[in-house]
Every structure is written in C-alpha cells, then in structure tokens.
Design a protein around this nucleic acid. Sequence first.
DNA 1: CGCAAGATTGGC
DNA 2: CCAATCTTGCGT
Length: 169
Amino acid sequence: MNTRIKATFFQRDVLEVAPELLGKILVRRYNNQEVQRYRITEVEAYRGNEDLACHASKGRTPRTEIMFHPGGRVYVYLIYGMYWMLNFVTGNTDASAVLIRGLENISGPGRVGKALKLDKSFYGENLEVSNRIWLEDSAEKTSYISTPRVGIDYAGEPWVNKPWRFVAQ
DNA sequence: CGCAAGATTGGC
DNA sequence: CCAATCTTGCGT
C-alpha cells in the first residue's frame, strides 16, 4: 500500500533528501479526477543561499520566498518563457530545494513540467495536503550515479563541479 | 525603466 | 547553431 510522504521527509539536508527521492512515486491528480503516477528518475540538489547555482543565493525575493519556508512545498518557476521547472523545497528555512529533472519515460525538466501541466498556481503547493500533487513511498530499491549539475556554468567554482545531480540506474 | 540572461527544448 | 517566449534581477 502506497503511503503519502510527509513534510518531515523533506525537512533534512537537501543532499540527503535528493538521492532518496529517486524511485519515489510522484502522484498528479488532474481536474480533481484522473490520477497518474510517475517514478522519479533524475534530480538535482540546490543547497541554500551559499550555493551560487541556487536561485536563493540572490536572497529572499518574491520568486525565492518559498525556499525560505520549511521543506515540503513546491517551488515552480518559468524558464525561457515556456518551461515550468518543478522543485521541492527541502531543509528547514535554509533555502534549499530539489529540481525534478526526470521521470520514468520523461527526460528533461521542461518535459516534466509539460507532462504534469504545471503553472504558476503550483507555487507554494503543500505536498503533505495537496489534492493535485504529492509523493508516495515505493518499496523499490534504487541505485544511482552522481554527476555535476546541468546548465549552471554561470555559478563558477566550486559549485559548477559539485556532484549534486543524481540519476537512477 | 530598459535589458540581458535564464535549473531548456526542438528544429533548421 | 539558434529561435521561442516571458519573468526576473540588476544596472542606469
């Protein structure tokens, strides 16, 4: 029986939470009816205001506000004017989050947002009580590899080389 | 207030 | 290689 993952799961160091998300089930309920489940296969960790690749490194702004809340919330933002990036806030008000870069049969963060039909109304959504997006445990054990994060050259050293991208194998 | 760049993707 | 498409943060 699948059980919904609680907020406390997210309220730990993002480097601990990120790899544990691999293999977990992302559940999306559309129009309060049809339910779809997706296995998480690829994630990236963004670690607080010191991590120059993390949006929160620019401080607390309307856009990064939710990252300064306790873990268990959704952080979405529009990139290149067309793709909604899905992130889960982690830690406890330390401005860290996990980007969902891939689901089973869906590669790439832009495609994830498109498949899940995300939009700005998901900003701040509470994963513990939401009726349209949440996570469930999976008995399946998942092995993974770590690599540097994608598309963050602007962050420079040492952040650009941190092996904080986790891919299920 | 203008503007350059972006956790990307797909098409030429 | 480059356009799509629009929000955001920063410089003026």
